[in-house]
Amino acid sequence: MNAFSPKVLEHFRDPRRAGLFDGEGLIVGNGASGHVKSGIRVRFRIGLDGSGRIARAGWECFGCPAAIASSDWVAEYCEGRSPEELSAPLPPLVAEALDLEPALLSRVLVVEDALRAALDDATSSRMCEKR
């Protein structure tokens, strides 16, 4: 029944970016998406450095192994990139990287929503700071 790919299981068993880091010295953005009731709830936190790049990303997730692995992969993928570099849809990238079955792609959409909300949050904080 657990038809999860080895790559999903790798991120699930040994996540690299689990938890919401302390964003000291960074411009932090938080976002959340999904609902426990529908089987997935994700929180994302990103931290922008002075150049506007994502220096750190972290997550919290209530969900199946695919949701947890997607959160972790997306967080890792973000780091070192600018928000603009993340404008392309993420699900195809995640699907490819984690060998996700198409049926599980809806999980990635929730992860993406949480990330985008965090990016929006950080960008608006940054604007305020600049002003």
């Binding site: 938890g19 959340a32 529908s38 089987g39 919290e60 959409l109 929503d113 909300a117």
Partner: peptide, 29 residues
């Protein structure tokens, strides 16, 4: 240790995604 559910009742941090994926979060508050 990394569940998004702890302290859910205690209010939300950050901004809510404006449009959750309809297929997954339909009906969710």
């Amino acid at each position: 240790s990394f569940s998004a559910v702890r302290g859910e009742e205690g209010g939300e941090i950050g901004t809510e995604a404006r449009q959750g994926n309809a297929a997954v979060s339909a009906g969710s508050k």
